[in-house]
C-alpha cells in the first residue's frame, strides 16, 4: 500500500518535513520510535527516519529529514500528492519517559527533529525542561518555536554566531551541569561527534545521559545485525535494543567509522542522481 504525501515543507536550506499517510504507524507509535521507508520500488534503499510527530485521527505521521545523499534528496524532490512505496514501523524501543525532575534536552542540527517528541513527552510527564539547540548557522536552525513552547529555558548556539550564542552546545551544557540545581537527566540527539563530546561532559558530572544512535540499517527488525554498535564492550543492535542508549557506554569512535562504510558508493549514487535531476529539470 503506497503512502501519500499529504503536505510538505522546507524548514531550512537542507531540511524538509512532510506529513505522510501511515494510519497503522500513527496509531502505534510512541516517542523515540522510527520508521524505515523506501521511496520507489523494491530496490530503492531502505532508510530509517524518526517519527517526529503523529496524528492518529488523520492517520498521518510527520517526518523531518536532512538532504544528505541520494535517498533523502529524492525524498526532498517529492511533492504533495506523490506516494512513497514503503513505510514500515513503528520500529525501535520507545523512549523511557518518566518524571526525572530537571531534564536537559540537547539537540544538534537535524537531531532537533527526533528530540522534539521526546521533549514534549518529558514535559507532559512533569519535568522541568532546559533545551539547548545547536546549529551551524541561523538558517540551519530548525524547530525553535516548537521547543520554545515546551521548554522552561531555551539556549541556542550557532557555530558562526549568526544567532544565539557563538559556541558549541557542549559549552552551555557544561554550565548547566555546574549549576547548584544539577540536572537529573540529559538527552542528546545530534551528529555522532556532538553526542560523543556531550557525553564526555556529562560523564564528569555523573549525570545519566541518553543518546539516540543513527547507525546504518537494512531491515530494522534485528535480523541483519548491520546496525550494531559496541556498547559496554558488547555488540548491541540499534534497531531493536535502541535507538536510545546510555551514552556513557557507547563506542562513538567506532560508530562514526561504521557510518562511513559506504562513502564511495554514496558519492556515486549522489552524482548519478544529480545528473538525473538535471535531466528532468529539477536542478537549477
Amino acid at each position: 500500500m503506497p503512502h501519500k504525501i499529504v503536505s510538505k515543507r522546507q524548514l531550512s536550506e537542507d531540511v524538509f518535513t512532510a506529513e505522510i499517510e501511515a494510519p497503522l504507524v500513527a496509531q502505534a507509535r510512541k516517542p523515540g520510535q522510527f520508521v524505515i521507508i523506501s521511496i520507489n520500488n523494491e530496490y530503492s534503499e531502505r532508510i530509517p527516519l524518526t517519527i517526529a510527530n503523529a496524528d492518529p485521527k488523520r492517520g498521518t505521521i510527520c517526518l523531518i529529514w536532512q538532504r544528505a545523499g541520494k535517498t533523502t534528496t529524492e525524498l526532498a524532490d517529492m511533492q504533495q500528492g506523490d506516494e512513497i512505496a514503503n513505510v514500515t514501523g513503528p520500529l525501535g524501543m520507545p523512549t523511557h519517559i518518566d518524571n526525572f525532575g530537571t531534564v536537559v534536552c540537547v539537540g544538534g542540527g537535524i537531531g532537533n527533529a527526533p528530540l522534539l517528541p521526546i521533549a514534549k513527552a518529558l514535559k507532559k510527564a512533569g519535568n522541568k525542561i532546559i533545551s539547548i539547540l545547536g546549529a551551524k548557522s541561523k538558517e540551519l536552525l530548525i524547530l525553535e518555536d516548537d521547543f520554545s513552547q515546551i521548554s522552561d529555558e531555551l539556549i541556542i548556539t550557532t557555530d558562526d554566531g549568526s544567532y544565539g550564542r557563538k559556541a558549541l552546545v557542549t559549552e552551555p551544557l557544561k554550565e548547566v551541569c555546574l549549576r547548584s540545581e544539577k540536572p537529573d537527566q540529559i538527552f542528546v540527539i545530534g551528529p555522532a561527534i556532538m553526542m560523543k563530546f556531550c557525553c564526555e561532559v556529562t560523564k564528569q558530572f555523573s549525570i545519566p545521559t541518553q543518546v539516540s544512535l543513527n547507525t546504518i540499517m537494512v531491515d530494522g527488525t534485528g535480523m541483519c545485525g548491520g546496525c550494531r554498535v559496541e556498547f559496554d564492550g558488547r555488540a548491541k543492535f540499534v534497531c531493536v535494543d535502541g535507538p536510545e542508549f546510555d551514552g556513557h557506554k557507547v563506542d562513538f569512535d567506532l560508530m562514526m567509522k561504521r557510518l562511513n562504510a559506504y562513502k564511495e558508493q554514496e558519492q556515486q549514487a549522489r552524482e548519478q542522481y544529480k545528473k538525473h535531476r538535471c535531466k528532468i529539470g529539477r536542478d537549477k
Partner: peptide
C-alpha cells in the same frame, strides 16, 4: 564491529 565485518544475514 569493524568496518567490513558482516553477518551473513546482512
Amino acid at each position: 564491529s569493524l568496518v567490513g565485518v558482516y553477518s551473513a544475514n546482512e
